[in-house]
């Protein structure tokens, strides 16, 4: 019984940390640029397919990282230039345009890889014993990497020069421009960073899920709910949102069943959107 509770508790931690890392890309783009990138999930999908390709070419798993980053950066740059830049002040239009993009990317993936499932072998198979329980190694590593990525991002955003420029751009684009910051280039870089983070998340979860063209849909909504609950523009907000959404889902799934967990997530998101649309931890 004890082992059950401990394992379920770690399941909650796992759910929260993977959700956080899968939300980062969306959070960066939405929080900093005000653009809701509905195609976020498709960039996760691209990461997952890169992982699949890397394995099918018998390369080491980590090669998937540069491959994904390169692909997502290229694609992100093109998308930003063609679709996002002309629409920065039209939030609904970016929403529907990126929705079209998600459809497009999904169909392209289907044309290249077919509609079927692909399986990515877990690079670190097996389980590890701790706290009197047994837990899959790869998931433990994933928890650690997720927290590391979030921490690095938070420190970089808070301390680095680029981070402070981005903060300047977000709080007052005209002023930032006047201070010699190229808002246009910075916004493009931010968008690319967001797509790359999404791809990175894809590489991380690829060994655990069925890799297929439709997989992206699952991620974008949950990620959006995390932002809604957590609030925009801060890593602590993101983590608290992931903790609320992922935690509630996982905890209720553990205590009751998955249906209740899913309903709880939807209701929680709606309540937050309605009652506290700025989230738990809002910027400024």
């Amino acid at each position: 019984m004890d082992a059950l509770i401990v394992t379920q508790a770690i399941n909650v931690v796992y759910a929260v940390s993977t959700l956080a890392v899968l939300t980062l890309g969306l959070a960066v783009i939405f929080g900093l640029l005000g653009v809701l990138n509905i195609a976020h999930g498709e960039f996760v999908m691209i990461g997952a397919y890169c992982a699949y390709l890397t394995q099918s070419w018998n390369w080491p798993y980590l090669v998937a990282l540069p491959l994904t980053l390169a692909l997502c950066a290229l694609l992100g740059a093109a998308v930003e230039r063609i679709m996002i830049r002309p629409l920065y002040r039209r939030p609904f239009d970016t929403l529907v345009a990126t929705w079209g993009l998600s459809l497009l990317l999904r169909k392209i993936a289907e044309a290249i890889f077919g509609p079927g499932f692909h399986s990515v072998t877990i690079p670190l198979p097996g389980t590890v014993q701790f706290l009197g329980i047994e837990y899959p190694i790869y998931r433990v590593v994933l928890i650690a990497v997720s927290f590391a990525v979030a921490a690095v991002l938070m420190i970089w955003y808070g301390r680095s020069r680029t981070g402070s420029r981005i903060r300047a751009m977000v709080s007052n684009p005209e002023l930032a421009q006047a201070q010699g910051i190229s808002v246009r280039r910075l916004a493009a870089a931010t968008f690319i960073a967001g797509t790359c983070l999404a791809g990175l998340g894809g590489v991380m979860v690829a060994p655990l899920v069925p890799v297929q063209p439709f997989m992206g849909l699952d991620y974008v909504l949950r990620a959006f709910f995390v932002l809604v609950v957590g609030g925009l523009g801060s890593v602590p907000g993101l983590l608290s949102g992931a903790a609320a959404i992922g935690g509630v889902d996982s905890a209720i799934s553990a205590a009751s069943n998955a249906t209740d967990g899913y309903f709880a997530v939807l209701v929680l998101a709606i309540l937050f959107l309605w009652l506290k649309p700025r989230g738990l931890i809002a910027r400024g």
């Binding site: 929403l95 909504l221 309903f263 939807l266 709606i270 959107l273 309605w274």
Partner: peptide, 26 residues
Amino acid sequence: VVLRRPGENTAYFSMITLALSLLAFQ
């Protein structure tokens, strides 16, 4: 109920309606 606040939350309104539609589907 949802459109209480002026202006800024219309994008949120979009997403609430989306979430409601998902909830109804389930």
